[in-house]
Design a protein around this nucleic acid. Structure first.
Length: 420
RNA sequence: GGAGGUGUAGCAUAAUUGGUAAUGCACCGGUCUUGAAAACCGGCGUCCUCACGGACUUGGGGGUUCGAGUCCCUCCACCUCCGCCA
């Protein structure tokens, strides 16, 4: 959420961001309510001050055994007026909040302007697309023939879109997760293991709600959402807290399964592991001081992509343009890995700086050395999501025999040099 | 799931029959000192306001009352015991 002060002072910037991101949001109505609320605060607080004075007079009268009937009458009247004013105020604040929660974050000045992926900017690329002197298979063919996963049986259990990994496929999945966790812990991230179901308030804090409600699994009976990313529980670790300047920056790494309804995305895009309702992911989350957040974004992106580098995969880093930027992000790099069998780039990570947008919703602040309170900046990025990483690994390291070589760094984690 | 208890600032502890949150420690700044400690002074929960000031704050929400930390209802968290389950 943006600060009302910022909107008040930069209405045209906010309106432009709403348009660029294709969001709804009514700046005029927001400003009207804001004005009304500030007037109400002024009026009601004046009455409350009068009430507090009158109460003191009653105490004084009682102490001197004087008649306080007139004063009590006055208190009654004031109390009734205050009650009405407070009620109006609460309602107006609620209305304003309902509008503010739909206003997206403002893109950083370095974000390329444009409406779709055609205006994204490739920042850097590593390696080259592997070439093969035999007819290559897709990950689905490889995984099926090597018995790494079994989508037909998985559908019996949960319907389509829920992977079932078997044997060495399961071992590969577990190995990837452990490799990535160990790797980031070594680089100074603190490992956390979180709840996988979260309260509505936690999802509003990170910006998943209200916009992405349709994409979330929800357990109505207990009023809990299944997490679509570890970003939600990890960011909420510090919800409502005031951190000290000394403990910043905070770097977390978390493994979690992720649950996404992926409403309305059926078709061949969902073949195999391309787009699934449940997948595993290692996530990096940072809480930092505002002045360092863009530096931290670069480092976070480097940390995430180093997994691809270590695994020897061909990938590129793409800076999203304003139209592609998610609701809560001010700037975002996507990591895309090359999948030879699919013959295209696959997104395996989004590394975003939310600036104070999430911190304001989640009320996460820190106290500067000079005593002033300020919102932290939050960042996060996948490092990485396993399904598309697995696709790239299988398709990149396949052999003419239909087996798959395991990159050396991963071998201790999988306990194999080759899947055959 | 059942019964009982607890919840006050970073921590720890107060608040007659309801009268509007007191104190200690820790922390920050200042005075003093060669420096530090001690002592003393100030700050030490949030919001509005250019400011002066003012308002709010006892786990959350609601109610009674002119007035609620205090009385009532409700939800939450934690503790103790019982039951159930892996």
């Amino acid at each position: 959420m943006l600060s009302i002060k910022y909107i008040r002072e930069n209405p045209e910037v906010v309106q432009a961001a709403i348009s660029n991101k294709g969001e709804k949001g009514d700046v005029h109505e927001i400003l009207r309510l804001d004005k009304k609320i500030r007037q109400l605060i002024h009026d009601v607080e004046a009455k409350k001050a009068e009430k507090n004075r009158t109460n003191s007079q009653i105490v004084e009268a009682n102490r001197n055994s004087q008649d306080a009937d007139q004063l009590i009458k006055k208190m009654k009247k004031l109390s009734a007026e205050i009650k009405m004013g407070d009620s109006d105020l609460t309602q107006s604040r609620h209305q304003l909040n309902e509008l503010l929660i739909w206003v997206p974050n403002i893109p950083h000045e370095s974000v390329p302007v444009g409406v779709d992926e055609s205006t994204n900017v490739e920042v850097r690329m590593r390696g080259e697309a592997p070439t093969f002197d035999f007819e290559i298979k897709t990950h689905l063919d490889l995984g099926t023939s090597l018995h790494l996963f079994d989508f037909e049986r998985a559908a019996k259990i949960s319907g389509s879109g829920f992977p079932l990994f078997t044997g060495k496929g399961a071992k590969l999945e577990r190995g990837l997760i452990n490799f990535m966790l160990d790797y980031h812990v070594q680089r100074g991230y603190k490992e956390v293991y979180t709840p996988f179901m979260t309260l509505p308030a936690a999802n509003e804090a990170t910006g998943q709600l209200p916009k992405l409600k349709e994409d979330m699994y929800f357990v109505e009976r207990d009023n809990l959402y299944l997490i679509p990313t570890a970003e939600v529980p990890v960011t909420n670790i510090h919800r409502g807290e005031i951190l000290s300047e000394d403990e910043l920056p905070i770097h977390y790494v978390a493994f979690s399964p992720c649950f996404r309804r992926e409403a309305g995305s059926y078709g061949k895009e969902t073949r195999g592991l391309l787009r699934v309702h449940q997948f595993n992911k290692v996530e990096l989350v940072k809480f930092v001081k505002p002045e360092t957040s863009y530096q931290e974004l670069e480092r976070l992106t480097r940390d995430a992509e180093s997994i691809l580098k270590e695994l020897g995969l061909h990938y590129r880093v793409v800076a999203l343009s304003t139209g592609e930027l998610s609701f809560a992000a001010a700037k975002c790099y996507d990591l895309e890995v090359w999948a030879p069998g699919e013959n295209r780039w696959l997104e395996v990570s989004s590394c975003s700086n939310y600036e104070s947008f999430q911190a304001r919703r989640a009320n996460i602040r820190y106290r500067r050395k000079d005593g002033k309170l300020e919102f932290v900046h939050t960042l996060n990025g996948s490092a990485l999501a396993t399904p598309r990483l697995t696709i790239a690994l299988l398709e990149t390291y396949q052999t003419d025999e239909g087996s798959v070589m395991i990159p050396e760094i991963l071998q201790p984690y999988v306990g194999e040099t080759v899947l055959k």
